[in-house]
């Protein structure tokens, strides 16, 4: 996978557009087992990310991702804000100074992001959260020879599996067993994020090829 600084930017912009388009659906998912704001939070935050990064030039992947992380932290709020924000912040640390990120470095960045989420959220896999998407994606990435399509496919399947899990973290946990049978909104927005990567990589490939 060819993740350049420009591709990283396109990734975040595409993700923002997807959050915007799925704003209603994400909030509906959150309505069922949370408080109904996840789509609005993500859309608000990524709209600001776009404002921040769209017309700025960056030298390294870390730079783009760091700007996104700071914006997310200060604009999203809720649980998703600090979690996504911390995830991007930790990844940006790994990707700092790199105009292009290798498959191995990409997986390292994901790993750092996941550690950030787990630490900030005191959470782990299997609790019906965004981690249930991020961790399978990381495992896929760690196999090497990353293909964005494959990551997205993994994210999709992992997201779908959250339906069967009982929530142990976040607001959905208040529902206990009643949370089973619903997709986790944060897992869905995470799936959207990795889905957006496909588009960015493809566009990047075309631009380069």
């Amino acid at each position: 996978m060819n993740l350049t600084t420009e591709t990283a930017k396109q990734w975040l912009l595409a993700a923002g557009r997807d959050m915007q388009e799925n704003k209603g659906y994400l909030s509906e998912l959150d309505q069922a087992i949370g408080d109904g704001d996840h789509g609005h939070n993500m859309a608000r935050g990524f709209a600001e990310v776009e404002k921040k990064i769209a017309s700025k030039t960056y030298d390294d992947v870390g730079g783009v991702v760091k700007d996104a992380s700071m914006t997310i932290i200060s604009k999203v709020g809720g649980a998703a804000g600090p979690l996504y924000g911390t995830a991007f912040l930790k990844a940006s640390g790994v990707w700092k100074g790199k105009a292009e990120v290798s498959d191995e470095e990409f997986a390292e960045g994901l790993k750092a992001a996941i550690d950030g989420i787990a630490q900030r959220g005191k959470s782990e896999q299997g609790q019906k959260t965004m981690l249930d998407v991020w961790i399978p994606v990381l495992q896929e990435a760690e196999k090497g020879n990353i293909e964005a399509e494959q990551l997205a496919q993994t994210a999709k399947e992992a997201m779908e599996k959250t339906e069967g899990i009982e929530a142990k973290k976040g607001r959905a946990a208040y529902l206990g067993e009643r949370s089973i049978g619903h997709l986790d909104p944060g897992a869905y927005s995470s799936y959207l994020l990795f889905e957006a990567l496909v588009e960015a990589i493809e566009a990047g490939g075309e631009a380069n090829g």
Partner: peptide, 8 residues
């Protein structure tokens, strides 16, 4: 925001 934690 309504029912959304404020940011740091």
């Amino acid at each position: 925001e309504v029912f959304t934690s404020p940011t740091p």
